[in-house]
Computed example of a mutant assay.
Amino acid sequence: MTLSALMPPRQVKIGDAALFAETTPRAIRHYHQIGLLPEPGRGADGRRRYGYDDMIRLLWIRRMAETGISLDDMRAAFEGTRDIDDVLARLERTLADQQADIARRRAAVQRLRAVGSPLGLLSTMVTDRLDHLPPGALRPGDLEALLVTERIFGALGAAIQASAFIVLATHPGLRAEQDRLDAAEAALDDGVHPGDPRVEALAVQRCAHQMALDRAVREAGLDAEEEKLFEMDDAGPAERRPTSLSVGQAVTKMPYDLSPARKRCVQRAAQLFAEALSAGG
């Protein structure tokens, strides 16, 4: 087949032009509407007829589109109102960003395959902490709590919370008390007034339990490892650092529909725990 056999006829209809340029008549009409491709004259039958120059312009449009150049940039380049080198430099930056994003996504997928799902959804800082646990020791609910904590307080906050789950997995008595308190707090539904004596009583019990967890963390030497986490976080990227939120603010960000009584219990327990820590408890 000779080159002349591959060349389009001198004047062709829109369907033939689209076939030659490997596009569609609809796309060509869109090019006309946005001023990217001048609309050619019409034949005696009232149909558009595309000549050699039109076909060359269509080929350029198709090739430029394949590289990722936007239609607006093409039009500006054809009109001479924008330097094609600037367009290409901007496109190269965009492609570099996309490449970096793909690299991050591939790394995340590889991590999920290596660590396992859903544990691999957590940050490396958090899963490294959980290496203390034997396989299967972490409850699904604990994993969900870590995911929520990391979203609100960052990887450092979740890594510190992981210390509590390590202790709970290795101290049956503390785990039983945790389950009891969780069930009691869940019973604080909308029918319970925030000023109900049960709210304060549960807050006191939750504070005592948290203090017992804190002691167990120190006895296990996990608090020393938490200090190392703070050092790592100071040297790490800002997005990994914990956010500064009050308990009240944190409660509003949690994806739970807590009753007013339960919210009050959580806030009061945190207040009591902070006071105990300040008092050297």
Rank of each mutant, 00 (worst) to 15 (best):
Leu168Cys: 03
Leu277Ile: 15
Pro194Ile: 02
Asp83Ala: 14
Arg175Ser: 09
Met125His: 06
His193Asp: 13
Gln161Glu: 11
Arg151Gln: 15
Leu147Val: 08
Ala238Phe: 04
Ala107Cys: 07
Glu226Gln: 14
Gln98Lys: 13
Asp234Asn: 11
Val126Asp: 00
Pro242Glu: 01
Val266Ala: 02
Arg75Gly: 06
Pro197Val: 05
His209Asn: 07
Leu202Val: 03
Ile160Lys: 02
Arg151Met: 12
Glu150Arg: 02
Glu275Gly: 13
Glu225Ala: 13
Asp189Gly: 07
Glu39Ser: 14
Leu202Ala: 05
Gln249Lys: 14
Asp16Arg: 00
Ala176Glu: 05
Arg151Cys: 09
Gly80His: 07
Leu71Val: 09
Ala137Arg: 08
Arg57Cys: 11
Gly51Thr: 04
Leu277Glu: 14
Ala212Cys: 11
Val12Tyr: 00
Gln161Ala: 14
Val167Phe: 05
Ala261Pro: 01
Met74Asn: 00
Asp233Pro: 02
Phe165Ala: 01
Tyr256His: 12
Pro255Ser: 12
Pro255Met: 10
Gln267Val: 01
Ala21Tyr: 07
Asp257Asn: 08
Gly43Ser: 14
Arg264Phe: 06
Pro242Leu: 01
Leu143Ile: 15
Asp53Gly: 13
Glu22Arg: 15
Ser163Thr: 09
Ile61Tyr: 01
Ala224Thr: 12
Ala187Trp: 06
His32Arg: 12
Tyr50Phe: 12
Leu130Thr: 00
Arg241Asn: 05
Asp128Lys: 02
Leu188Arg: 01
His209Lys: 03
Gly280Met: 14
Gly141Trp: 11
Gly68Thr: 02
Ala201Val: 06
Ile84Thr: 11
Leu146Ser: 07
Thr67Gly: 09
Gly136Glu: 13
Met55Asp: 03
Ile34Arg: 11
Leu156His: 02
Ser4Leu: 11
Leu181Tyr: 04
Ala77His: 04
Asp86Gln: 15
Gly51Met: 03
Arg175Phe: 11
Pro242Cys: 08
Ala269Gln: 00
Glu275Gln: 07
Asp196Lys: 05
Ile84Ala: 14
Gln33Lys: 15
Ala5Ile: 15
Pro135Ala: 12
Ala108Asn: 10
Ala162Asp: 00
Arg264Val: 01
Gly248His: 10
Asp234Val: 05
Gln267Trp: 06
Glu66Arg: 07
Glu92Gln: 14
Pro140Lys: 10
Ile102Ala: 08
Leu168Trp: 01
Ala238Gln: 11
Met7Val: 12
Glu39Ala: 15
Val204Gln: 06
Arg26Thr: 08
Met125Leu: 15
Pro118Phe: 08
Leu130Tyr: 06
Leu174Gly: 03
Gln210Asp: 06
Ala65Val: 11
Ser244Val: 05
Leu130Ser: 03
Pro260Phe: 04
Gly173Phe: 04
His171Ser: 02
Val217Asn: 00
Gln33Asp: 12
Thr24Ser: 15
Ala276Met: 12
Arg111Glu: 03
Gly154His: 00
Met55Leu: 15
Thr124Phe: 08
Leu229Asp: 00
Pro40Met: 15
Asp142Val: 05
Asp45Phe: 10
Asp73Trp: 04
Asp16Pro: 04
Ile34Gln: 10
Pro242Phe: 02
Val148Arg: 14
Arg57Leu: 14
Asp190Met: 04
Ala183Asp: 06
Arg175Cys: 05
Arg268Gly: 03
Gly35Trp: 09
Gly43Leu: 14
Asp190His: 10
Ala107Phe: 05
Trp60Gln: 15
Val148Lys: 04
Ser4Asp: 12
Ala270Gln: 03
Met7Gly: 09
Asp223His: 07
Pro40Glu: 09
Arg151Thr: 13
Val217Pro: 01
Gly281Asn: 10
